[in-house]
């Protein structure tokens, strides 16, 4: 099933790529916060934008991580019973419990999309002193949910292949962590 593998690999690569870029936002948050402190304390001229911009970049950073973390098996679970099953049984279990995953991410995708749309529709700004637009950051919710959903689909296909015996599971998931 080359198409399936291509999908799984493609999605994982996409999320890894987005993660590599989004992870750099930490430098922006660090720099902007320090700049804010510098302006307020050293120059006695507080900025109106540093706190708000940091907050929004953090929101973007946090929400976009969903797919990346999943691609690296970084969403923690309880492995008390789970670890005792065979890889194939685990795959079957994951297929069953993925219903919850899809309900959650589906709800976030649709209703997050709605929140983003309401914001775009009214060209929402924060009405703070700086008054930046909010919609790019709200739009990150459905985008992130979509990326997470894709990664979840990739995992589902992988689990189905494993359950059917078409694919051997990776030896140790933990090795995948960056």
């Amino acid at each position: 099933m080359p198409v399936l593998y291509a999908f799984i690999n493609g999605v994982t690569r996409l999320n890894a790529w987005i993660g590599r870029i989004a992870s750099l936002l930490i430098f922006a948050m660090f720099g902007i916060l320090l700049l804010g402190v510098f302006y307020r304390y050293a120059l006695d001229a507080p900025t109106v934008w540093t706190t708000e911009l940091t907050q929004f970049l953090f929101g973007l950073y946090a929400v976009l991580s969903g797919g990346y973390v999943m691609a690296h098996r970084g969403h923690v679970n309880v492995d008390i019973v789970y670890a005792r099953f065979s890889p194939r049984a685990r795959a079957v279990l994951d297929i069953i419990t993925s219903v919850l995953f899809f309900l959650f991410t589906g709800a976030v995708l649709y209703f997050g999309g709605l929140i983003a749309w309401e914001s775009i529709d009214s060209m929402e700004t924060t009405y703070s002193s700086w008054n930046p637009p909010v919609y790019p950051f709200k739009a990150a919710i459905p985008v992130a949910a979509f990326l997470l959903l894709l990664q979840g689909l990739a995992k589902l296909f992988e689990d189905i292949a494993i359950a059917l015996g078409r694919m051997t599971p990776e030896p140790d998931n933990a090795e995948h962590r960056p």
Partner: peptide, 19 residues
């Protein structure tokens, strides 16, 4: 915060937003 932040800044004080 908000409109008062702009106003206070324009009036010469150093206003900023803190959560």
């Amino acid at each position: 915060s908000g409109a008062l932040e702009t106003f206070l800044t324009k009036a010469g004080a150093s206003a900023s937003y803190i959560p």
